[in-house]
Simulated assay, not measured.
Amino acid sequence: MTTPRRFPTLLQLEQREGALFTVLGNLTKRPYWFHLEYLKSPKAVRLEAWLMEAIFGRGGEHIPHVECVSQTLLHVNQWDPEGEAEILIFGRPYYQKDVSKMIMNLADYHRQLRAQCLEKVPVQDAATQEAATQSSPKAAQEEATQRSPDTAREVATQRSPDTAREVATQRSPKAAREAATQRSPKAAREAATQRSPKAAREAATQRSPKAAREA
């Protein structure tokens, strides 16, 4: 037979097979308000095992305080942490009733609290995923400006022909003048030989006297 877990109490009680509960230890140290005849008719309350520490604290450390306030003795039988636990309440009948009601109310409260905690976990996970996918426009701009140089060159080389022509025609005036002065020698000679008749006559009349006599 599996031995139940032992919780602290003002008086350690033991139930023998086919017999009443007996008090372990020195009977002279029992509380003044507790009488041995109360051991004959305990009131039993059965709850989930995990509620024992939720109601009475870690390891049942609050049980002695509850016993002092309620003037009852609590004997807890818990064999399996994942199963059920049994609370036996010893004392006057109306005290037994009050303590039993208090324990059941606390059990309902902790069940609801646990259910709310379990419901919040999936909701928080979904909210985290949405926040990650819905980044702000500012973050998107920063990501765009922080692209690598290789990516920037690829974007520049993949421009459409129309975009390239627009960029070429929109050069600054200074760039246009520099381009004009850097024509090839052939283009310069052709431009020189294609002067207007008026410019040719002016050039002929403005020759030096020596050139005119030789002519």
Rank of each mutant, 00 (worst) to 15 (best):
S148T: 15
A164N: 06
P173S: 06
Q134C: 09
E143P: 00
Q141Y: 15
E166W: 07
P185I: 01
P161R: 10
A127E: 15
A179L: 14
A132L: 14
E142C: 02
S184F: 06
V167W: 03
A132D: 06
D150T: 13
P149A: 12
A179T: 11
T128P: 00
P185W: 09
P149F: 10
A127I: 10
T151H: 09
S136F: 05
A180V: 05
T181R: 06
A131Y: 03
A176G: 03
A139C: 03
T133N: 03
T169A: 03
R153N: 09
A131V: 03
A152F: 07
S135Y: 06
P161G: 01
S172P: 00
A176S: 11
R183G: 02
A176C: 08
A127K: 11
R177N: 05
A164V: 13
R153F: 12
Q182N: 13
A168S: 06
A179W: 12
S172T: 14
R147M: 11
A175W: 02
R165P: 00
T145V: 12
Q129D: 04
Q146Y: 04
S160N: 08
T133L: 12
S136P: 03
E154H: 13
A144V: 08
R165D: 00
R177A: 12
P185D: 04
A156P: 00
D162C: 01
V167M: 10
S136I: 02
A131W: 02
S135Q: 13
T157W: 11
T151Q: 15
Q141L: 15
A156R: 14
A180R: 07
T145Y: 14
A168N: 05
S172F: 02
P149R: 09
R165Q: 11
K174S: 08
Q129V: 07
Q129T: 01
Q182S: 12
T181V: 12
R171I: 05
A176W: 10
K174G: 07
T133K: 06
A156Q: 12
K174F: 01
R171Q: 09
S184D: 06
Q158P: 01
T157L: 15
A156C: 07
E166M: 06
P185H: 08
R153M: 14
T133C: 01
A132K: 10
R153Q: 15
A176H: 09
R159T: 06
Q129M: 10
D150E: 15
A132H: 10
T151K: 09
